[in-house]
């Protein structure tokens, strides 16, 4: 089991965390003006890289706060310190 560094609590075992998928997916600024295809991409389509991936994590069994971290999907290793963003 690997340790994940919560930016508020420090390193904790990964079972304390929940996965939130790709980071930096913003809600559309003008949702009413989106085409069906644009909606589909917002709702369903996410990047799936083999390599570094910026993603959301929640320390759900700890401080319950969200943060963003970059992890390499080939090795599962976190490659940059998590950011303190909620």
């Amino acid at each position: 089991m690997q340790l994940i560094a919560c930016p508020w609590c420090g390193p904790r075992e990964e079972i304390e965390f929940s996965y939130g998928g790709q980071a930096h997916v913003a809600y559309p600024e003008h949702p009413a003006s989106l085409t069906d295809e644009q909606w589909a991409h917002f709702v369903f389509f996410r990047d799936n890289p083999k390599g570094p991936f910026a993603e959301r994590w929640s320390h759900s069994a700890g401080c319950r706060r969200w943060f963003t971290a970059v992890r390499d999907t080939r090795t599962h290793r976190f490659v940059s310190p998590p950011e303190m963003t909620s």
Binding site: M1, E14, S18, G21, E55, R71, T73, T75
Partner: peptide, 13 residues
């Protein structure tokens, strides 16, 4: 396993 990965191994828990 909950998170994306291409490593052909998973977590022990």
């Amino acid at each position: 396993d909950s998170y994306n990965g291409y490593g052909q191994r998973g977590a022990f828990h």
